[in-house]
Design a protein around this nucleic acid. Structure first.
Length: 271
DNA sequence: ATGGGCACCTGGCTGC
DNA sequence: TGCAGCCAGGTGCCCA
């Protein structure tokens, strides 16, 4: 589910209320996440204070007195801050009960999400160490992308969804960024001209920032830390708009399949 | 190294 | 109404 804007919106929402709080209890109802939680998971977190909530790519990093909790929301996960007395619903797999009588509650129907407790710098964790630059950083610019795209035969859409090249861009924002850049998603990455890649870098940054301002995109089940949806769906140009008129030229939006993922584009605006 | 395909899992929708 | 089939914001892993 969540791409960078949704994860960052979640980060901001929970940081506000959990920073500085102590974990009074950890309840694991379902340890079978993408990677099973170890039996001592709860004991390791218990009693620790939450120092900071950060984000790297689509991972939330919850820094504790000792070590950090690395959380991924997968396709259908959400993290909410609720009064501890809030009734448990299906798929509420983990609660971090805070001493403020609030709980940080992890819900994830598909269980593609994950949690890892680590004592090392999260950036050095196996899952994070090879991640590419953040798309909103200055390091991610046209020169960087031109260098990486050289000689690559993968489609430009799969290319920008590869976390070893740039992070945070998932299936929605890949299609949206390519629309903004006027690039057809199926073209080989290595054949895109430098000025087009420059537009793509700009398109990625612009769409992620715009989505962030709207609190992300809710298609089906994404909710932020307060349980509210994101409002960027109304502003999407192509994603899940197949058959509908392009907001720019009125041509019907088309859908195709690329790397087993649905892809949307305007056949007239994107070359 | 690169690219392609599969796997993990639940739930909602479509069409017979 | 029931049920099979397909699809869904991600990403690690295996194979050619």
């Amino acid at each position: 589910m969540p791409e960078l804007p949704e994860v960052e919106t979640t980060r901001r929402g929970i940081a506000q209320t959990v920073t500085g709080r102590r974990i009074a209890a950890v309840i694991v109802r379902e340890p079978r996440l993408r990677w099973p939680l170890p039996s001592d998971f709860a004991a390791q977190l218990n009693g620790q204070r939450i120092r900071e909530v950060r984000r790297r790519a689509k991972y939330l990093l919850i820094d504790l007195d000792r070590g950090s909790l690395i959380v991924h929301l997968g396709m259908s996960g959400s993290l909410r801050v609720l009064p501890s007395s809030t009734p448990i619903l299906k798929h509420d797999h983990v609660d971090l009960e805070l001493e403020s009588n609030q709980s940080l509650r992890f819900n994830d129907p598909r269980r593609f999400g994950s949690m890892h407790y680590t004592l090392e710098d999260p950036a050095q964790h196996m899952l994070l160490r090879k991640l590419a630059p953040e798309p909103l950083s200055d390091e991610f610019d046209a020169d960087y992308l031109v260098g990486k795209a050289r000689g690559r035969k993968v489609s430009i859409k799969q290319f920008i969804m590869n976390g070893n090249l740039v992070v945070g861009v998932g299936n929605i924002y890949a299609s949206e960024a390519l629309f903004r850049a006027g690039i057809k998603p199926t073209r080989a990455a290595g054949r895109i001209k430098p000025d087009e890649l420059k537009r793509l870098v700009k398109g990625i940054k612009t769409v992620l920032n715009a989505a962030l301002r709207a609190g992300g995109t809710t298609l089906r089940d994404y909710v932020n830390a307060d349980g509210a949806p994101g409002y960027f769906r109304q502003k999407l140009f192509v994603y899940e708009r197949d058959g509908q008129p392009c907001r720019n030229c009125k041509s019907p939006i088309k859908q195709l399949r690329s790397g087993q993922r649905s892809t949307y584009y305007c056949p007239s605006c994107q070359k």
